[in-house]
Structures are given as structure tokens and as C-alpha cells.
Amino acid sequence: MPFNFEKILGAHEPALHMQSRRAQLLAANIANADTPGFKARDIDFRAALQRVQSSGSGQMGQMMTTNKRHMAPTDEIGGDEILYRQPFQASLDGNTVESHVETAAFTENSMRYLMSLRFVSGKFKSLTTALKGQ
């Protein structure tokens, strides 16, 4: 019986990828909270994960290369999935970062990351138990 880690880990593995990528985006938003003209960006997490699951490969919804001259995508997430945040109160200098929104999103994202991690860790633990047979 061959092990299929993709099946064992399910949606958690691509979710971890996306959450770490999203952590980077949100960190960039927080870092640029005082930069004039900076536009805050974020991923539509639900849509991105749905696309991964509907593609069924367990991969990060990567484009297929059907010809050897096709170029491999450089990023796990396509550029079109990174959206612009609509600010509640836009500031005069064109900056759309609202640090409370971004901090909340970052904290939420890191909790979700830790949650996915807990699930993955649990899967590995049960595998170890099965292997040891104790």
C-alpha cells in the first residue's frame, strides 16, 4: 500500500503554503503603514483554497506544463489572486493600510497557520503510532 501524503494531509498542506504566503503579504502591509501612496493587498483565501481543491492535485493550483517549452510558474499564487484592500477610512496621502485591520488579519492568519500545523502534526503522530504498533 503506497503512502499518499497528499491524501493523508488533505487541504492542510496547501493551506499552510497559502497562509505563510499571506503572512508575508500582511507583514508587508504593516511594514508600509506609514508609506505614502501604498495600497494594502491581501489574498482571497477562500477562493484560492477552493481553486486548489477543485484542481484536485493537492498542489497549489499550479498551471500545468503540457509542452516542454512552457515556463514554470514562479509563484505558488498567481498575481491575479492578490487583491487590493478596500479601506474603511482612506487617508489623504493615498495609503490604504489600516494598521488595526492588518494586525487583526495577521493575528488571525497566524492562528489559522498554527491550527493547520496542529492538524498536520496530529496526522504525522498517528502515522508514527501506526508504524510503531505500540
Binding site: 508575508q24 508587508a28 508600509n32 508609506t35 501604498f38 493587498r41 509563484d75
Partner: peptide, 17 residues
């Protein structure tokens, strides 16, 4: 202040300040 990288799409670098 200005963003370090204009495009968000580059995988290697995030846009710092």
C-alpha cells in the same frame, strides 16, 4: 518612505519599506 519593490508578484522579495 517608499515601498522597496513596486510589484507584489515577485516571489522572492516582499515589498518592505
Amino acid at each position: 518612505f517608499a515601498p522597496l519593490v513596486k510589484a507584489f508578484d515577485s516571489a522572492s522579495k516582499g515589498p518592505g519599506v
